[in-house]
Computed example of a mutant assay.
Amino acid sequence: MSPWEIMTRYIGDLIDISIVSYIIYRLLVLLRGTRAIQLVQGIIVLIIFWVASRFLHLTTVRWLIQNLSSVGLLAVIIIFQPEIRKALEQLGRGGMFFNRKKQFQHKLVSKITTEISKAAAHLSKRQIGALIIIERKTGLSDYIETGILLEARLSAELLKNIFLPNTPLHDGAVIIRDGQIMAAGCYLPLSENPFISKELGTRHRAGLGLSEISDAVIVIVSEETGVISVVTHGKLDRGFNEEQLNLRLLEELKSPKKKSRWSTFWIREKEGTADE
């Protein structure tokens, strides 16, 4: 085999590996932040067990995994049907491989923090409950789909109107992505942490529940007391005014702190108590 053929084959193998690696990476990015990622982790664990059973000659374990894998492909297609459909839609739009990288630019961050702080301060004075979610790296598409899709430009006035009592969208959460209100009236998972204060109501439990499985920044206005809270990574801080909230959101969105999402839950009370 000539040196030219060897080089051509080497370059072809390199391109082949690069394409496959990128496809796998894009699929993982697509699944990140959804419930499907836990299923992917389970499949990886099964693969590790299967490899280990071959090296350690664990006949029974290998037999069990091989029999499970015979129906595994069909099960994966059924379980991942929404994600497969979303991937194909993005591929058709060219969005799976050429989507722009989400970046919180300075101007956009300032717009987000200002509008949310103004709305939260207004709602706090009138003791109107609110639950506002700011998406960061972890995708929240699963929860956006549970609400009413808006895809509207973020403004304090719109947030105030969404959370007005006795209006169709005032219950549930508002989810914000890249400076847009993606959806309102969204349902969030409630935290099952047994150490949460009994004084905290459904809004706070929902905010804490989402923060335990994502890196979202969550703003909560208590309906009972008007106290403004910020939740990140399972940690709840309370007692913000408009200026303090603006500074805290700027800090979180410009320089996200690297904390474990499974960090110990704790609450620092700044004033009063809260209930929904």
Rank of each mutant, 00 (worst) to 15 (best):
I44R: 11
K259P: 09
E223C: 06
A52S: 15
F98T: 09
E271Y: 09
L74E: 07
L28D: 08
L88S: 11
D171A: 09
I213A: 01
K86H: 12
I134M: 07
T232S: 11
V221Q: 03
S211A: 07
P168C: 06
L108W: 09
G179S: 04
R126W: 12
A152E: 15
K257I: 13
Q103D: 11
E89P: 07
L14S: 10
E251T: 13
R136A: 05
R62M: 09
R248E: 11
N99C: 10
V61H: 03
A121C: 10
I213R: 00
D215C: 05
A119F: 04
T113H: 07
K258F: 15
E145C: 05
L210S: 02
E199D: 10
F265G: 06
L253C: 10
S222P: 00
K101G: 09
Q81E: 15
I44L: 15
G179D: 03
A173N: 01
L208H: 01
I176F: 05
I79V: 14
K102R: 14
S2R: 06
C186K: 02
G92C: 10
E157M: 09
V20Y: 10
I19M: 07
E269P: 07
T146C: 03
K257F: 15
P82Q: 05
R62Y: 08
R62V: 07
I37Y: 05
E115K: 04
P189E: 01
E135K: 05
W63I: 12
L149W: 12
A121Y: 08
Q103E: 15
I78S: 07
I48K: 10
E157R: 12
V219K: 00
L210Y: 00
E135A: 06
L27A: 07
H233C: 06
Y22I: 14
G207Y: 01
K198C: 06
D178S: 14
G172T: 00
E252Q: 11
I47G: 12
L249Q: 03
P189C: 05
